[in-house]
């Protein structure tokens, strides 16, 4: 079953006068299946954030369609099932961790003991329980990212959309976030995340798609993508990094597997 389905999804950013400025995404056709970890790869400016924002209904398609769990992305009933972590953690800087999560919890309709329990649990998972009374403006980058993730986990979501979840983190912080992603998958959550780092996607993803200049140039299961046709006889699996760079350079869609 597909959780997200896009059909010829295209986004052209317009300038103030409504004239086309940037073609950020071109005819994206993508399906994210239930329970998988999907990595959206691509260099900076390739349209990853644009694609994710379209799927969340924060911006609207120029042409094409996107549906999430069979509904238009702005449908209010979806909002408590989908967690979104933006590229940087943009939360209210004057609140502390507990206050932040209580605020978002109230937006979910939680209250009293249930709310407190969930806040405690989430703060434990992301490891911020000891600094829960410190205002977010004093948080380091790594702590802010964890807070961004906490806000996602608070929903106990069916689908997590994470925009560059490990960007700017040290290897330990990045590793912890990856562990949480893997844990989410074990619990049956679908995860869609974007990254410009290949090493990030490799150990985590069931499938990846590579965006380049707004176009999806390849997509499929990692294992399939790495079988390079002209080298099958030798059965040498290409190193992922080389594959990534070569695919982008050739903009080769020949081994586009569905």
């Amino acid at each position: 079953m597909s959780i997200i389905k896009t059909e010829n999804l295209t986004k052209v950013y317009k300038d103030f006068w409504g004239r086309p400025k940037t073609r950020a995404l071109s005819e994206l056709n993508l399906e994210i299946h239930k329970g998988e970890i999907f990595g959206l790869l691509g260099p900076n400016g390739s349209g990853k954030t644009t694609a994710l924002k379209l799927m969340l209904g924060l911006i609207f398609p120029t042409t094409g369609k996107v549906s999430v769990m069979g509904k238009p992305p702005r449908d209010i009933s979806l909002k408590s099932k989908i967690g979104f972590m933006p590229e940087e953690s943009y939360l209210y800087r004057f609140l502390n961790a507990s206050e932040t999560l209580c605020f978002y919890g109230q937006l979910l309709g939680l209250k009293g003991k249930e709310l407190n329990n969930r806040v405690d649990r989430v703060l434990n998972i992301v490891g911020l329980d000891r600094v829960r009374t410190q205002p977010l403006r004093e948080y380091s980058k790594g702590m802010s990212r964890r807070m961004g993730l906490a806000q996602v986990l608070l929903k106990e979501p069916e689908l997590c959309v994470l925009d560059e979840p490990t960007i700017g983190l040290d290897p330990i912080g990045a590793g912890e976030i990856k562990d949480i992603i893997q844990q989410l998958k074990k619990e049956g959550t679908t995860v869609l995340f974007s990254t410009h780092l290949l090493s990030e996607a490799e150990p985590l993803c069931d499938r990846i798609g590579i965006l380049y200049e707004g176009r999806l140039i390849t997509m499929g299961a990692l294992t399939d993508l790495l079988e390079v046709k002209d080298e099958v006889e030798v059965k040498v699996r290409e190193k992922l990094e080389e594959f990534y760079i070569r695919t982008i350079k050739n903009r080769d869609t020949s081994h586009f597997s569905k």
């Binding site: 969340l56 209904g57 924060l58 209010i76 009933s77 909002k79 408590s80 989908i82 967690g83 979104f84 933006p86 943009y90 939360l91 978002y104 937006l107 979910l108 309709g109 806000q151 929903k155």
Partner: peptide, 8 residues
């Protein structure tokens, strides 16, 4: 971003 991806 975060507020509007909550049921608001």
């Amino acid at each position: 971003y975060t507020v509007l991806t909550y049921p608001v």
